[in-house]
Design a binder for these strands. Structure first.
Lengths: 215, 215
DNA sequence: TCGTTTTCTGACCGTATGGTCAAGATGCAG
DNA sequence: CTGCATCTTGACCATACGGTCAGAAAACGA
């Protein structure tokens, strides 16, 4: 099997596999618990129960609650960064920004816990990931702002403030994850259907792309 | 003085005034602490210290931490509802929605803690205010959707999905409160200036109003 | 002034939590 | 098989937290 082959190539057998698998299931449980209870409300016991492991075992893999939390937030940050790849390869704003909105909404749909943990972390003053904000995110943002400004200068879209356009895209796409419970409540208590998610993508792209004169 | 006159009319003197003032300062401190630490991370001791009162005194005015939290969230909800009054008196979408965006951004600027507590509450599944979501917010939302749909039917704006337009407005305006720390970090660590806030209002209104064909 | 109501507060309590530890179980190389 | 490294786990600990309470202090009405 390909997976086993890779495991034996990278790791050293069952022991490495055990570690990998346990860290995976712990991180997965931690992400959900942190998202639903916040850092302060989350307990190692809850995470342990959800992971199906004794609490002491968590502390074997992650020394402290903060270490575990840090790893969760870092994982999310990685996903966020890779989500923007579509931005770069596009020639015009309708294609680039449209694809970016689609990608961000896909993450909100399939990775809502991560989005919530990120939101919670930032709302509390980003005590854990301040350096990421100041370096990685700042650089990333400046790059995209320059790209949008280039489109503006080329006359491919209306002269909008690129920064606030980015914020609007972030806010709107993440809203469907962070406020998913509210949206579900206003949807008769039911999660959005496939059709409704298509409607979301369509509505968001329509308003924003027309709003920046890219259609 | 008018205020004292009202106090003496409603209350019965210094005792009532003491209660009113203490509840006010406690709620004010609680809102900040809940916003910055989340419900689980907030402690009664922290709130008491910030309010300049002994912890036992908090429990004299608010029986439990949950009671105090509930009051904070309810206060915020009231503010949110009143913010939408501008919506109703307007004849066309440019005026109505423009004024609504302005009002929401004003709240984000001057009442960021409230917005954060609300966001946190919803993100955690709205354990305290689920009934508000299901009744008050649902009714409010249906009313505004109908109003927007009327504008669409009258040809005053493009045929967009009113619900997702509302969500976009909520998301974008609240983003400047909930993610204020991130925005500040991306603004060289400095809060937005008066000029920058005007720029925000202008950018958001420009993109959305053009996006819905209301200009 | 005097008795009653309201407000204030230090000291205290039970519980839950993050974290530790030592001893045992399991995997694995030689 | 043997010895070492890794993994597992129940029991335990110190701390911090929400909440209680009794009694002092202050406000108040008569």
């Amino acid at each position: 099997m390909n997976e086993n082959a890779q495991v034996s190539r990278i790791g050293k057998g069952k022991r490495t596999e055990i570690r990998r698998e346990n860290e995976r299931v712990i991180l997965r449980s931690a992400e959900k618990v942190f998202a639903e209870a916040g850092f302060g409300g989350a307990t190692m016991q809850l995470i342990a129960d959800m992971a199906g492991l004794p609490k002491a075992n968590l502390h074997y893999y992650f020394a402290t609650k903060e270490d575990l939390y840090r790893r969760v937030v870092q994982n999310i940050f990685e996903i966020w960064l890779h989500a923007a790849d579509s931005f770069d390869t596009a020639a015009d704003p309708a294609e680039g920004i449209g694809a970016y909105i689609d990608a961000k909404l896909e993450i909100s749909r399939h990775h809502p816990f991560g989005s919530k943990v990120w939101a919670s972390e930032v709302m509390h003053g980003a005590p854990v990931i301040q350096d990421y904000l100041e370096i990685t995110l700042r650089n990333w943002t400046e790059g995209r702002i320059a790209a949008i400004q280039r489109w503006v200068d080329e006359g491919k879209m209306a002269p909008v403030n690129p920064r606030h356009l980015l914020y609007m895209i972030w806010a709107t796409t993440q809203h469907y994850a962070d406020f998913g419970h509210q949206i579900e409540t206003l949807n008769a208590g039911k999660p959005l259907s496939d059709r409704q998610w298509r409607e979301v993508k369509d509505s968001v792209k329509t308003i924003i792309l027309r709003g920046i004169g890219a259609v």
